[in-house]
Nucleic acid binder design. Sequence first.
DNA 1: CTGAAAGCGCTTACAG
DNA 2: CTGAAAGCGCTTACAG
Lengths: 337, 337
Amino acid sequence: VAGKAPTMRDVAQLAGVSIQTVSYVVNGKDVISATTRARVIEAIEQLNYRRDPIARSMRTKQTRLIGLLVLDITNPVLSVIASAVEAATFDQGYKVILQNVGMDASREKEYLIESAGSLIDGLIIVNSVDRQATLEFLETEQVTAVLIDCLSSTTVPSVAVDNVKAAHIATSHTIALGHRRIAHITGTLSLLMGQQRQQGYLQALADHNLAYERIVVSKSERWDYQAGYDAMNELLRDHSPPTAVFAASDQMAIGAYQAIAKAGLRVPEDISVIGFDDMELAQFAVPALTTIRQPFTEIAANAISLLLQLIAAEKPERTQLILPPKLIIRQSTAELK
Amino acid sequence: VAGKAPTMRDVAQLAGVSIQTVSYVVNGKDVISATTRARVIEAIEQLNYRRDPIARSMRTKQTRLIGLLVLDITNPVLSVIASAVEAATFDQGYKVILQNVGMDASREKEYLIESAGSLIDGLIIVNSVDRQATLEFLETEQVTAVLIDCLSSTTVPSVAVDNVKAAHIATSHTIALGHRRIAHITGTLSLLMGQQRQQGYLQALADHNLAYERIVVSKSERWDYQAGYDAMNELLRDHSPPTAVFAASDQMAIGAYQAIAKAGLRVPEDISVIGFDDMELAQFAVPALTTIRQPFTEIAANAISLLLQLIAAEKPERTQLILPPKLIIRQSTAELK
DNA sequence: CTGAAAGCGCTTACAG
DNA sequence: CTGAAAGCGCTTACAG
């Protein structure tokens, strides 16, 4: 970013050694005598020398750059994942290139194609607009990649929470509170996690022999406030609405709050609501939201660890990781009266 | 990311031309005859050739990489700015390296130092933990950088909303509704925007000759739900609490909602609340939040445009841009009864 | 423990 | 309109 920077040659000259001696010192190879090393370090400091990462990458064919292809960084859940990925990456001496899809399939495609180039060593994908196309591309182009939280595939490595189990736990929680008319609201099922959460919901109902089944699927890719608001309004128009609602995301749950309030009803007195994610807002909502917590930090750390193994051409013993969810009970669910 | 990739040499060989002919074609220099160009393009497609960006950067001394140093990507406001920056960058053929500080001054420092290296062409900074240190570093190291939204300085280029005016508008709105006891809650004043918003608040009170002044400053760098919740609780302990509250962020406003609800009071019947930012949640809160909208897309686009001019060594006519805020009236503010 | 040399894959004057 | 050559700043065998 600055002006003409000093090079290894300059350092070598000042220290009175050869260039590769400087290289060895910079790379911490202890093949250099202490006195020589000291001279080199002194020269480095005097010149304020910084190794050129581009030239280094040119030789090593590694950039230590990771692509982070994320559906929408403004989504509270995805931003938490992005933050955790960045932190894990930083700890390992890598940097992340932010590739924000913003729900735009053509941009996703463009980013994907670039990922096959030499700029990044590997790719983390958090959600995907066009799942099938993404998986195909990754396989044909042999891109080193790990999927997070939505895209499982038998061939591409992935890390995710156990969505089926989590949805089962959430639904069962409301059943345990005496509810029998439990609805599910979710965003588009084009995301695999949508299908999985729905499956967990249905399974819990089946396990308890409940006949009432009611699912409202929004077209939203974002699973956001608006989607939850709209879906809840649809439920409230039912002849006899549910007494509990399991939302596939916290954002949808909070959107549902508003629809319920506008209908003159209260959470949880009239309708219990349970979310999914445990985003920061959950505990500050009124009432505080009962939800399923995803282990985001663990997910990200595992994904990065997996990716770095793949980059190093190691064979990880397991490439499909499923992490456990956790039920967080707050004030938005109550016993059926 | 893939295996051994074809190089320009391979393309040249297949097309039966020299390497630099290929280079000219790839770079769209129209110095090449149509027939030759066609042959080259055919060879490129046949080999699935992609230019190596690292080798290119090595020669051109430009990486087309922008650093995005952001205080906390999980903050809803900062994630919106990050998203807008990424979009503007993408449109210009640049990519962004995500440098998430996560409120950690030592990481901020590390990232800053790396920014002085050759990996990025320029730096966008969104908030800063240690403002003084950041400004000093940028100046002594001559880093090409643009600040967003908090860090104005006479020497370093910056883009921000007019915080003083915005706070003045917000406060005046509650005054126009008849309120006389208007409090201000804010996060740490180490961020310049905190000082500016406070200034706008005080000025509005002075302009209307109101004697009541009440400011609660949280220690929080995050200006988040918790900070708003805590600050509001403090206000509610006052001998005679305010009838209106101007929060320096929407998150703090939503946090205040919870404190008000827990005290058995209602928004806006008992206390009017106005926020700052217009984050997505604002319109889905119950009640929907009156707030100040920041023109995030414009801010980001201007910042990138400014940065690219600086990278191109052009002299922008203005390097300190201040954009206008907009009052968004919803349901959280009401006339004093 | 240290030095001389090749080469990573491009771009860019310079000739022709 | 096209070709031959230098060089960006490193790393990495290979000698010594």
